[in-house]
Design a protein around this nucleic acid. Structure first.
Lengths: 165, 165
DNA sequence: TTTTTATCTGTAATCATTACAGATTTGTTG
DNA sequence: CAACAAATCTGTAATGATTACAGATAAAAA
């Protein structure tokens, strides 16, 4: 997991100005254990920063992705892009039913990045390694292959449930 | 690369009816060398199938993804989801500037899928292994890290250029 | 053939993400 | 420290890919 200061330093080093908004977004990213969307970050920070604009959240996340400080995983069966604050090479397992993403340690991903680096001739800045489940094809859509306790909201291997829009 | 009959058979085996529309979409997927979007498939087939609906293309692609016959890679810097007809384990390199995706052979990805399969306890149906470039951060946005000949349209390691919407 | 049910089509939403323009900051310079 | 130029923010108004919907069609089964 990236720390708040690692994220803010990355922005600063890349030539971006450090503003209260950006600092708050970095702090939120570092504190969260899940794979937030722009909207969820905005909702969370809106409480303290009344005036924080959703546009600013999008801009900042985009900047962080471009400098390789965080990564964009794409959607998880919903229509929102999920971000990954943890840039340690690993696999992401996404559930298309509950839209949560779980991290899975993997040595093979390190090897992957070496391959990419070699093929492109430059350091890997960003990427997504996501495997998504076939929940949707199952008879009971609540039967999540990553956990059998999604329906009743019981704690499971994922974080909080985010309802489908 | 999947063949047309492999795709149609997959649909049939999964319990879907074989219709002329689905067959045409499968044929288009099998024939293309790039990583098409729903829109590009639709545009291509619209010429022969005047009445083919964009909705049908989306539905069919979604079905194919769900049964694991093709994969969804997410966006490539544009706002469209790109599909991957080639389900042989490999790495995808996406250029955020020209929105094209290149395949890169990789033994490590096979190992990845073994890890995922083991962790989830079931066969891997779908996933995305995409590394995206930092084109956008470069001084000259035309300087694509995967090829230096994007600007003038000269042939390069990617397929055809798809303009940003 | 008749029936049942899946699939198609065209159109009308939906809604995440971006574009924009003016108001605010930030960092810098004298 | 005041003044400036550039970057950043904010709120609102698009944009446009994708999805929802309902009636029309066509596939598989009886």
């Amino acid at each position: 997991m990236a720390t708040r200061s690692e994220l803010t330093s990355a922005l600063k080093d890349a030539g971006f100005r450090l503003t209260p908004q950006r600092t708050a977004i970095c702090a939120a990213l570092a504190a969260r254990e899940d794979h937030p969307t722009a909207q969820s970050i905005h909702e969370e920070l809106k409480q303290q920063y009344e005036s924080l604009s959703l546009t600013t959240v999008y801009q900042t996340l985009d900047s962080l992705v471009r400098i390789g400080a965080i990564r964009s995983l794409g959607t998880a069966g919903d229509d929102s892009v999920h971000y990954e604050p943890n840039i340690e090479p690993h696999i992401n397992l996404a559930c298309l039913t509950c839209h949560r993403i779980r991290d899975l340690e993997s040595e093979a991903v390190r090897e992957l990045e070496r391959e990419v680096s070699e093929a492109t001739g430059s350091k890997v800045l960003s990427g997504r390694v996501v495997y998504y489940s076939d929940c949707l094809l199952r008879a009971d859509p609540n039967e999540c292959p990553f956990s059998s306790k999604v329906a009743d909201g019981t704690a499971n291997t994922f974080g909080n449930v985010e309802p489908k829009r």
